[in-house]
Simulated assay, not measured.
Amino acid sequence: MRQIGLLYNVHKQEACSVRTDICRQLERTGIRVVDVPIDHDTAIVETHPELKSCELVIVLGGDGTLLGVARQLSPFHVPMFGVNIGHLGFLTESEPSQLEIALERIVAGEYNLETRLMLEAFVYRDLQEIARFTALNDVGVGKGSFARMVTLDVHVDDVYVDTYTGDGMIVATPTGSTAYSLSCGGPIVSPHLQVMVLTPVCPHTLFSRPCVIDASSWVRLSVHARHGDVELAVDGQEGMRLLAGDEVLVRKAPFQATLVRLPDREFFGVLRSKLHGDPSST
C-alpha cells in the first residue's frame, strides 16, 4: 500500500482545516495517510518513525514549517511537498486553492524530485566541538539584540579571506540565496548549483562584497568581540550564543533535501511571482 505523510502546523487554523480535505482525497484512492500534527519543537522522526518509509510527505504551513521539517527528514531522503499556508511560500509548491489538482497529480505520480544542497555547522570552543546543526537556507553569525558590531575572521579551506566588521556574516545555500542573504545584498543563485554564498551583513566598509564559492569548501568563521552579544542562527529558527574565540565551521552536509516539484513550475517563474508580484506567473 502506498503511504504518504501529512504534516500540519497546529498553530495555523487553515492548515488544520485543509488537512481534513487532504486525508479524505488521498484515502479515497487507497493511499494510507500518516497524520502528524507538528510545531517547531516536534521531534518528527522519533515520534513517527514510519515517516522514513513514506513515498513523500505533504507539509501544511509556511516556509518556516518546511525548513523545520527538512532539517529532520532530509537525512532519510524523504521527499517533501509544501503547501503554502503562510506569507511568502517561496519553498512551497502549492496554494490551498490549487490543492485538489496537485493531489491528483501526486496520486498519478506526475511530479519530479528536486534535490537541494544543505549545510552542516560545527561550533568549536577551546578546540572542542560543543554543538552541531544542519540548515537548508543558511547559517548566520552576527550580533544579538543590542546594536553592537561584531568582527569575524573568514577562512575558506584554511585560506584567509578577510576580516569583516559589521552585523555579521551569512553562509547560504542556493535555496537560501533568496532568503536573508538576498535582503543583505547577496546574489540570487539557481537552486541546482552546488555552491555556497558568503554574504556580509551591514559591513562597516565600502569594499566588502558577497562571494560565491564551491560547495566542497569549508568555511571557518572566527568570532572576535569584547561583548557577549554574538549569536549563531540556523535557518532563522535554531542557534546558540557564541563567545569571543569561538569558531563556526560550515560545510556541505552529507545529505540533501528532496523537494516534490510539479512539472509546470520552474524557478524563475516562481521567483517573479513571489518576489516581484508578477500576476502573469502565478
Rank of each mutant, 00 (worst) to 15 (best):
195 V>P: 03
173 T>K: 05
93 E>C: 01
84 N>L: 08
40 H>S: 15
219 V>F: 08
236 G>H: 07
171 V>D: 08
135 A>G: 06
226 R>S: 14
21 D>Q: 15
53 S>V: 08
189 V>D: 02
255 F>A: 08
80 M>F: 10
245 G>D: 01
17 S>H: 14
205 T>P: 10
82 G>N: 10
167 D>K: 06
54 C>E: 10
83 V>W: 03
134 T>D: 12
138 D>C: 06
13 Q>H: 15
279 P>Q: 11
26 L>D: 09
144 G>N: 04
73 L>V: 09
167 D>A: 08
223 V>A: 00
238 E>M: 14
235 D>A: 13
136 L>R: 05
257 A>D: 15
150 V>E: 05
95 E>A: 00
263 P>T: 03
65 T>H: 06
265 R>F: 06
73 L>E: 08
34 V>S: 03
232 L>I: 03
160 Y>C: 03
19 R>K: 13
279 P>H: 10
11 H>Y: 14
153 D>N: 14
105 R>H: 15
238 E>V: 07
247 E>N: 09
126 D>T: 04
195 V>E: 07
193 L>C: 09
218 W>G: 12
29 T>S: 12
254 P>V: 00
67 L>K: 09
26 L>T: 07
30 G>S: 10
50 E>N: 02
151 T>L: 04
113 L>C: 13
169 M>N: 00
49 P>Q: 11
164 Y>S: 03
78 V>K: 03
78 V>H: 02
99 L>S: 06
10 V>R: 13
274 K>Q: 09
163 T>W: 11
235 D>G: 12
57 V>F: 12
224 H>W: 09
178 T>C: 07
214 D>E: 15
99 L>T: 10
80 M>S: 05
274 K>D: 03
210 P>G: 05
3 Q>W: 03
251 R>Y: 07
74 S>M: 10
13 Q>T: 06
152 L>H: 08
194 Q>R: 14
23 C>R: 15
83 V>S: 02
108 A>S: 11
36 V>E: 05
176 G>W: 02
24 R>P: 00
226 R>H: 14
40 H>R: 14
56 L>N: 08
54 C>S: 11
231 E>W: 13
21 D>E: 15
225 A>P: 04
168 G>W: 01
146 F>T: 13
65 T>V: 06
177 S>V: 11
80 M>V: 02
178 T>D: 04
116 R>K: 07
244 A>T: 13
14 E>V: 08
252 K>T: 14
242 L>P: 01
131 A>N: 15
174 P>E: 09
219 V>A: 08
273 S>Q: 01
249 L>F: 13
255 F>W: 15
157 D>S: 14
226 R>D: 13
91 L>G: 04
188 I>N: 04
43 A>M: 05
47 T>F: 11
273 S>P: 01
56 L>T: 06
46 E>S: 14
227 H>R: 09
11 H>C: 02
192 H>M: 06
177 S>W: 09
172 A>D: 05
86 G>E: 05
98 Q>G: 08
25 Q>T: 02
77 H>T: 01
